[in-house]
Design a protein around this nucleic acid. Structure first.
Lengths: 174, 174
DNA sequence: CGCAGTGTAAAACGATCACTTTACACCGTC
DNA sequence: GACGGTGTAAAGTGATCGTTTTACACTGCG
Protein backbone atom coordinates (compact mmCIF):
# COMPACT_ATOMS: atom_id res chain seq x y z
CA UNK A 1 0.00 0.00 0.00
CA UNK A 2 1.45 3.35 -0.98
CA UNK A 3 2.06 6.19 1.44
CA UNK A 4 -0.93 8.36 0.66
CA UNK A 5 -3.40 5.46 0.69
CA UNK A 6 -2.14 4.36 4.08
CA UNK A 7 -2.31 7.92 5.36
CA UNK A 8 -5.89 8.47 4.23
CA UNK A 9 -7.23 5.16 5.46
CA UNK A 10 -5.64 5.45 8.89
CA UNK A 11 -6.79 9.07 9.13
CA UNK A 12 -10.34 8.10 8.21
CA UNK A 13 -10.35 5.57 10.99
CA UNK A 14 -9.14 8.09 13.59
CA UNK A 15 -11.47 10.87 12.47
CA UNK A 16 -14.40 8.48 12.55
CA UNK A 17 -13.62 7.07 16.00
CA UNK A 18 -12.56 10.21 17.82
CA UNK A 19 -13.76 13.19 15.81
CA UNK A 20 -11.92 15.58 13.52
CA UNK A 21 -10.91 18.37 15.86
CA UNK A 22 -10.02 16.04 18.72
CA UNK A 23 -7.62 14.08 16.50
CA UNK A 24 -4.22 15.79 16.52
CA UNK A 25 -1.49 15.53 13.92
CA UNK A 26 0.67 13.48 16.28
CA UNK A 27 -2.00 10.78 16.43
CA UNK A 28 -2.33 10.91 12.66
CA UNK A 29 1.39 10.58 11.99
CA UNK A 30 1.70 7.79 14.54
CA UNK A 31 -1.26 5.84 13.13
CA UNK A 32 0.00 6.28 9.56
CA UNK A 33 3.49 5.20 10.63
CA UNK A 34 5.20 8.20 9.06
CA UNK A 35 6.94 11.39 10.05
CA UNK A 36 5.05 14.66 10.11
CA UNK A 37 7.22 15.92 7.27
CA UNK A 38 6.05 13.10 5.02
CA UNK A 39 2.46 13.60 6.10
CA UNK A 40 2.59 17.27 5.17
CA UNK A 41 4.26 16.52 1.87
CA UNK A 42 1.32 14.29 0.91
CA UNK A 43 -1.59 16.02 2.56
CA UNK A 44 -0.54 19.69 2.67
CA UNK A 45 -2.61 20.57 5.72
CA UNK A 46 -5.05 19.08 8.17
CA UNK A 47 -8.00 20.58 6.32
CA UNK A 48 -6.74 19.11 3.04
CA UNK A 49 -6.32 15.74 4.74
CA UNK A 50 -9.92 15.89 5.97
CA UNK A 51 -11.04 16.76 2.45
CA UNK A 52 -9.06 13.83 1.04
CA UNK A 53 -10.57 11.48 3.61
CA UNK A 54 -14.08 12.66 2.77
CA UNK A 55 -13.44 12.32 -0.98
CA UNK A 56 -12.17 8.76 -0.54
CA UNK A 57 -15.09 7.86 1.69
CA UNK A 58 -17.49 9.31 -0.84
CA UNK A 59 -15.93 7.18 -3.56
CA UNK A 60 -16.24 4.02 -1.47
CA UNK A 61 -19.76 4.92 -0.38
CA UNK A 62 -20.94 5.58 -3.93
CA UNK A 63 -19.72 2.16 -4.93
CA UNK A 64 -21.60 0.55 -2.05
CA UNK A 65 -24.96 2.02 -3.07
CA UNK A 66 -24.91 0.80 -6.66
CA UNK A 67 -28.29 -0.87 -6.28
CA UNK A 68 -31.63 -0.62 -8.04
CA UNK A 69 -34.27 -1.01 -5.35
CA UNK A 70 -35.18 0.76 -2.14
CA UNK A 71 -34.93 -2.42 -0.10
CA UNK A 72 -31.46 -3.09 -1.50
CA UNK A 73 -30.45 0.44 -0.57
CA UNK A 74 -31.09 -0.30 3.09
CA UNK A 75 -29.49 -3.73 2.76
CA UNK A 76 -26.40 -1.93 1.52
CA UNK A 77 -26.52 0.44 4.49
CA UNK A 78 -26.81 -2.51 6.85
CA UNK A 79 -23.82 -4.18 5.23
CA UNK A 80 -21.91 -0.91 5.44
CA UNK A 81 -22.41 -0.45 9.19
CA UNK A 82 -21.57 -4.08 9.85
CA UNK A 83 -18.17 -3.47 8.28
CA UNK A 84 -17.56 0.17 9.16
CA UNK A 85 -19.49 0.51 12.40
CA UNK A 86 -22.17 3.09 13.06
CA UNK A 87 -21.00 6.41 14.37
CA UNK A 88 -23.25 8.55 12.20
CA UNK A 89 -22.69 10.17 8.83
CA UNK A 90 -19.05 11.31 8.72
CA UNK A 91 -19.93 14.14 6.35
CA UNK A 92 -22.57 15.66 8.62
CA UNK A 93 -20.23 15.21 11.56
CA UNK A 94 -17.50 17.11 9.71
CA UNK A 95 -20.01 19.82 8.90
CA UNK A 96 -21.09 20.02 12.53
CA UNK A 97 -17.57 20.16 13.93
CA UNK A 98 -16.53 22.98 11.63
CA UNK A 99 -19.83 24.86 11.80
CA UNK A 100 -19.75 24.97 8.00
CA UNK A 101 -16.97 27.56 8.19
CA UNK A 102 -14.49 25.55 6.12
CA UNK A 103 -15.49 25.89 2.45
CA UNK A 104 -13.64 22.80 1.20
CA UNK A 105 -15.41 20.64 3.78
CA UNK A 106 -18.79 22.25 3.14
CA UNK A 107 -18.29 21.53 -0.57
CA UNK A 108 -17.46 17.89 0.08
CA UNK A 109 -20.63 17.54 2.16
CA UNK A 110 -22.76 19.22 -0.51
CA UNK A 111 -21.36 16.99 -3.23
CA UNK A 112 -21.90 13.85 -1.20
CA UNK A 113 -25.45 14.67 -0.21
CA UNK A 114 -26.43 15.77 -3.69
CA UNK A 115 -25.20 12.43 -5.06
CA UNK A 116 -27.06 10.49 -2.38
CA UNK A 117 -30.30 12.32 -3.04
CA UNK A 118 -29.90 11.90 -6.81
CA UNK A 119 -29.37 8.16 -6.39
CA UNK A 120 -32.46 7.84 -4.21
CA UNK A 121 -34.51 9.84 -6.70
CA UNK A 122 -33.35 7.49 -9.43
CA UNK A 123 -34.30 4.36 -7.47
CA UNK A 124 -37.66 5.70 -6.31
CA UNK A 125 -38.52 6.77 -9.83
CA UNK A 126 -37.64 3.28 -11.00
CA UNK A 127 -39.89 1.66 -8.40
CA UNK A 128 -42.87 3.96 -8.72
CA UNK A 129 -42.71 4.50 -12.46
CA UNK A 130 -41.88 8.15 -11.86
CA UNK A 131 -45.38 8.75 -10.54
CA UNK A 132 -44.45 9.74 -6.99
CA UNK A 133 -41.39 12.01 -6.94
CA UNK A 134 -42.31 13.24 -3.43
CA UNK A 135 -41.50 9.77 -2.08
CA UNK A 136 -37.81 10.32 -2.79
CA UNK A 137 -37.42 12.86 0.00
CA UNK A 138 -39.25 10.54 2.38
CA UNK A 139 -36.86 7.72 1.57
CA UNK A 140 -33.93 10.11 1.96
CA UNK A 141 -35.20 11.05 5.43
CA UNK A 142 -35.52 7.36 6.31
CA UNK A 143 -32.00 6.75 5.08
CA UNK A 144 -30.51 9.59 7.11
CA UNK A 145 -32.64 8.54 10.04
CA UNK A 146 -31.41 4.97 9.84
CA UNK A 147 -27.81 6.20 9.84
CA UNK A 148 -28.36 8.51 12.81
CA UNK A 149 -30.52 6.17 14.87
CA UNK A 150 -28.13 3.25 14.35
CA UNK A 151 -25.63 5.17 16.49
CA UNK A 152 -27.62 4.29 19.61
CA UNK A 153 -29.95 1.53 18.47
CA UNK A 154 -27.72 -0.43 16.12
CA UNK A 155 -28.91 -2.34 13.04
CA UNK A 156 -32.48 -2.50 14.37
CA UNK A 157 -32.91 1.06 13.21
CA UNK A 158 -31.92 0.11 9.68
CA UNK A 159 -34.29 -2.85 9.65
CA UNK A 160 -37.13 -0.57 10.78
CA UNK A 161 -36.20 2.02 8.16
CA UNK A 162 -36.22 -0.57 5.38
CA UNK A 163 -39.66 -1.80 6.47
CA UNK A 164 -41.01 1.76 6.54
CA UNK A 165 -39.50 2.60 3.15
CA UNK A 166 -40.88 -0.57 1.57
CA UNK A 167 -44.32 0.19 2.97
CA UNK A 168 -44.24 3.72 1.57
CA UNK A 169 -43.18 2.50 -1.87
CA UNK A 170 -45.77 -0.29 -1.81
CA UNK A 171 -48.40 2.30 -0.95
CA UNK A 172 -47.31 4.47 -3.88
CA UNK A 173 -47.71 1.57 -6.28
CA UNK A 174 -51.31 0.80 -5.25
CA UNK B 1 -30.74 36.68 34.23
CA UNK B 2 -28.40 35.10 36.74
CA UNK B 3 -24.82 34.22 36.00
CA UNK B 4 -25.14 30.50 35.44
CA UNK B 5 -28.20 30.80 33.20
CA UNK B 6 -26.40 33.34 31.05
CA UNK B 7 -23.33 31.14 30.92
CA UNK B 8 -25.22 28.04 29.86
CA UNK B 9 -27.35 29.73 27.22
CA UNK B 10 -24.42 31.53 25.60
CA UNK B 11 -22.35 28.32 25.72
CA UNK B 12 -25.16 26.35 24.10
CA UNK B 13 -25.23 28.84 21.26
CA UNK B 14 -21.48 28.62 20.67
CA UNK B 15 -21.31 24.84 20.92
CA UNK B 16 -24.21 24.54 18.50
CA UNK B 17 -22.78 26.96 15.94
CA UNK B 18 -19.12 26.00 16.01
CA UNK B 19 -18.84 22.60 17.66
CA UNK B 20 -17.74 21.57 21.14
CA UNK B 21 -14.03 20.96 20.69
CA UNK B 22 -13.52 23.94 18.40
CA UNK B 23 -15.06 26.31 20.96
CA UNK B 24 -12.36 27.46 23.40
CA UNK B 25 -12.81 28.77 26.90
CA UNK B 26 -11.87 32.29 25.82
CA UNK B 27 -14.79 32.39 23.40
CA UNK B 28 -17.06 31.05 26.11
CA UNK B 29 -16.01 33.62 28.71
CA UNK B 30 -16.26 36.42 26.18
CA UNK B 31 -19.73 35.38 25.01
CA UNK B 32 -20.95 34.96 28.58
CA UNK B 33 -19.49 38.35 29.49
CA UNK B 34 -17.64 37.07 32.51
CA UNK B 35 -14.11 36.33 33.66
CA UNK B 36 -12.70 32.83 33.36
CA UNK B 37 -12.52 32.65 37.14
CA UNK B 38 -16.27 33.17 37.45
CA UNK B 39 -16.92 30.66 34.67
CA UNK B 40 -14.91 27.99 36.43
CA UNK B 41 -16.58 28.73 39.76
CA UNK B 42 -19.97 28.00 38.18
CA UNK B 43 -19.14 25.29 35.67
CA UNK B 44 -16.14 23.52 37.18
CA UNK B 45 -14.70 22.31 33.88
CA UNK B 46 -15.39 22.36 30.18
CA UNK B 47 -16.80 18.84 30.29
CA UNK B 48 -19.13 19.82 33.14
CA UNK B 49 -20.21 22.87 31.16
CA UNK B 50 -21.03 20.68 28.17
CA UNK B 51 -23.00 18.37 30.45
CA UNK B 52 -24.91 21.34 31.90
CA UNK B 53 -25.66 22.63 28.41
CA UNK B 54 -26.97 19.23 27.31
CA UNK B 55 -29.09 18.89 30.46
CA UNK B 56 -30.65 22.30 29.92
CA UNK B 57 -31.27 21.57 26.25
CA UNK B 58 -32.86 18.26 27.17
CA UNK B 59 -35.19 20.06 29.60
CA UNK B 60 -36.22 22.58 26.96
CA UNK B 61 -36.59 19.90 24.31
CA UNK B 62 -38.75 17.69 26.51
CA UNK B 63 -41.08 20.60 27.07
CA UNK B 64 -41.32 21.22 23.33
CA UNK B 65 -42.48 17.68 22.54
CA UNK B 66 -45.38 17.58 24.99
CA UNK B 67 -47.82 16.58 22.28
CA UNK B 68 -50.21 13.69 21.73
CA UNK B 69 -50.10 12.91 18.03
CA UNK B 70 -47.44 11.94 15.51
CA UNK B 71 -48.28 14.88 13.24
CA UNK B 72 -47.97 17.28 16.18
CA UNK B 73 -44.58 15.77 16.99
CA UNK B 74 -43.23 16.84 13.62
CA UNK B 75 -45.00 20.18 13.89
CA UNK B 76 -43.11 20.68 17.14
CA UNK B 77 -39.84 19.78 15.42
CA UNK B 78 -40.57 22.24 12.65
CA UNK B 79 -41.28 24.98 15.20
CA UNK B 80 -38.07 24.05 17.02
CA UNK B 81 -35.82 24.39 13.99
CA UNK B 82 -37.49 27.65 13.00
CA UNK B 83 -36.44 29.09 16.35
CA UNK B 84 -33.19 27.22 17.01
CA UNK B 85 -31.96 26.58 13.48
CA UNK B 86 -31.05 23.17 12.11
CA UNK B 87 -27.53 22.02 12.69
CA UNK B 88 -28.39 18.44 13.62
CA UNK B 89 -29.00 16.79 16.96
CA UNK B 90 -26.66 18.42 19.48
CA UNK B 91 -26.54 15.24 21.54
CA UNK B 92 -25.40 13.04 18.68
CA UNK B 93 -22.91 15.72 17.67
CA UNK B 94 -21.48 15.74 21.20
CA UNK B 95 -21.26 11.96 21.08
CA UNK B 96 -19.49 12.09 17.73
CA UNK B 97 -16.99 14.73 18.76
CA UNK B 98 -15.96 12.86 21.88
CA UNK B 99 -16.10 9.40 20.33
CA UNK B 100 -18.21 8.34 23.31
CA UNK B 101 -15.10 8.49 25.48
CA UNK B 102 -16.52 10.98 27.98
CA UNK B 103 -18.89 9.08 30.30
CA UNK B 104 -20.87 12.12 31.49
CA UNK B 105 -21.61 13.11 27.91
CA UNK B 106 -22.44 9.56 26.85
CA UNK B 107 -24.86 9.37 29.79
CA UNK B 108 -26.55 12.62 28.79
CA UNK B 109 -27.02 11.30 25.26
CA UNK B 110 -28.40 8.00 26.50
CA UNK B 111 -30.87 9.72 28.81
CA UNK B 112 -32.03 12.09 26.09
CA UNK B 113 -32.53 9.39 23.47
CA UNK B 114 -34.28 7.03 25.86
CA UNK B 115 -36.76 9.80 26.73
CA UNK B 116 -37.33 10.61 23.07
CA UNK B 117 -37.99 7.00 22.17
CA UNK B 118 -40.28 6.54 25.18
CA UNK B 119 -42.29 9.59 24.16
CA UNK B 120 -42.65 8.32 20.60
CA UNK B 121 -43.70 4.89 21.83
CA UNK B 122 -46.36 6.56 23.97
CA UNK B 123 -47.75 8.61 21.08
CA UNK B 124 -47.69 5.75 18.59
CA UNK B 125 -49.41 3.47 21.05
CA UNK B 126 -52.05 6.15 21.54
CA UNK B 127 -52.65 6.47 17.82
CA UNK B 128 -52.65 2.80 16.91
CA UNK B 129 -54.40 1.52 20.02
CA UNK B 130 -51.23 -0.26 21.03
CA UNK B 131 -51.62 -2.67 18.14
CA UNK B 132 -48.46 -1.77 16.22
CA UNK B 133 -45.53 -1.28 18.59
CA UNK B 134 -43.08 -1.80 15.72
CA UNK B 135 -44.24 1.51 14.19
CA UNK B 136 -42.60 3.40 17.05
CA UNK B 137 -39.09 2.67 15.83
CA UNK B 138 -40.07 3.68 12.30
CA UNK B 139 -41.35 7.02 13.57
CA UNK B 140 -38.19 7.44 15.63
CA UNK B 141 -36.11 6.87 12.49
CA UNK B 142 -38.21 9.44 10.63
CA UNK B 143 -37.74 11.89 13.48
CA UNK B 144 -33.97 11.48 13.55
CA UNK B 145 -33.93 11.56 9.77
CA UNK B 146 -35.88 14.81 9.68
CA UNK B 147 -33.42 16.37 12.12
CA UNK B 148 -30.39 15.20 10.16
CA UNK B 149 -31.74 15.93 6.68
CA UNK B 150 -32.91 19.41 7.68
CA UNK B 151 -29.24 20.33 8.03
CA UNK B 152 -28.89 20.44 4.25
CA UNK B 153 -32.48 20.48 3.00
CA UNK B 154 -34.15 22.69 5.59
CA UNK B 155 -37.77 22.44 6.70
CA UNK B 156 -38.74 20.48 3.57
CA UNK B 157 -37.22 17.40 5.17
CA UNK B 158 -39.48 17.78 8.20
CA UNK B 159 -42.55 18.22 6.04
CA UNK B 160 -41.67 15.05 4.12
CA UNK B 161 -41.04 13.17 7.38
CA UNK B 162 -44.40 14.20 8.77
CA UNK B 163 -46.16 13.03 5.62
CA UNK B 164 -44.35 9.69 5.74
CA UNK B 165 -45.07 9.20 9.43
CA UNK B 166 -48.75 10.03 8.98
CA UNK B 167 -49.00 7.59 6.10
CA UNK B 168 -47.42 4.83 8.18
CA UNK B 169 -49.76 5.47 11.10
CA UNK B 170 -52.77 5.67 8.80
CA UNK B 171 -51.75 2.35 7.29
CA UNK B 172 -51.49 0.80 10.75
CA UNK B 173 -55.01 1.89 11.57
CA UNK B 174 -56.60 0.30 8.53
C1' DC C 1 29.71 8.08 -9.50
C1' DG C 2 26.37 11.60 -8.78
C1' DC C 3 21.98 13.13 -7.95
C1' DA C 4 17.06 13.77 -7.41
C1' DG C 5 13.41 11.74 -4.90
C1' DT C 6 11.52 10.00 -0.86
C1' DG C 7 11.77 8.79 3.45
C1' DT C 8 13.33 9.29 8.62
C1' DA C 9 13.94 11.49 13.59
C1' DA C 10 13.72 15.36 16.33
C1' DA C 11 13.73 20.07 17.56
C1' DA C 12 11.48 24.30 17.20
C1' DC C 13 7.81 27.68 15.69
C1' DG C 14 4.17 30.86 17.65
C1' DA C 15 -0.48 30.17 18.90
C1' DT C 16 -3.86 28.35 21.53
C1' DC C 17 -5.55 24.86 24.75
C1' DA C 18 -7.98 24.14 29.52
C1' DC C 19 -7.20 25.86 33.77
C1' DT C 20 -5.17 28.44 38.03
C1' DT C 21 -3.47 32.23 40.44
C1' DT C 22 -2.80 36.84 42.21
C1' DA C 23 -4.63 41.07 43.43
C1' DC C 24 -8.41 43.99 43.89
C1' DA C 25 -13.41 46.08 44.07
C1' DC C 26 -18.17 46.09 45.24
C1' DC C 27 -21.85 44.34 47.97
C1' DG C 28 -25.45 43.69 51.80
C1' DT C 29 -25.32 41.89 56.66
C1' DC C 30 -24.30 41.26 61.50
C1' DG D 1 -16.99 48.97 60.20
C1' DA D 2 -15.01 44.42 59.65
C1' DC D 3 -17.01 40.72 57.04
C1' DG D 4 -17.80 36.74 53.63
C1' DG D 5 -19.64 36.32 49.09
C1' DT D 6 -19.34 37.37 44.40
C1' DG D 7 -17.58 39.60 40.89
C1' DT D 8 -13.59 41.72 37.91
C1' DA D 9 -8.94 42.04 35.09
C1' DA D 10 -4.82 40.02 33.83
C1' DA D 11 -0.82 37.28 34.12
C1' DG D 12 0.88 32.63 34.23
C1' DT D 13 0.56 27.32 34.41
C1' DG D 14 2.32 23.38 31.45
C1' DA D 15 0.52 20.96 27.63
C1' DT D 16 -0.79 20.50 23.07
C1' DC D 17 -2.21 22.61 18.74
C1' DG D 18 -0.95 22.70 13.43
C1' DT D 19 3.07 23.52 10.95
C1' DT D 20 7.99 24.17 9.56
C1' DT D 21 12.76 23.34 9.84
C1' DT D 22 17.27 21.15 10.22
C1' DA D 23 20.04 17.39 9.37
C1' DC D 24 20.60 12.90 7.66
C1' DA D 25 19.82 8.04 5.26
C1' DC D 26 18.18 5.02 1.60
C1' DT D 27 16.83 4.09 -3.06
C1' DG D 28 16.69 3.69 -8.15
C1' DC D 29 18.15 5.96 -12.35
C1' DG D 30 21.28 8.33 -15.67
Amino acid sequence: MDTKTKLISSAERLFDRHGFTATGMDKLTQAAGMSSRTLYKHAGSKTALITDVLAERHRRFQHSIEVDSVAALFDALEAWVRVEGCRGCLFLRAQGETGGDTPEIADAVRTHKAALYAKIQEIVSLETGGLHPEKAEQVLVLYEGATATAVYRGVDAIVAARAAASALIQQARA
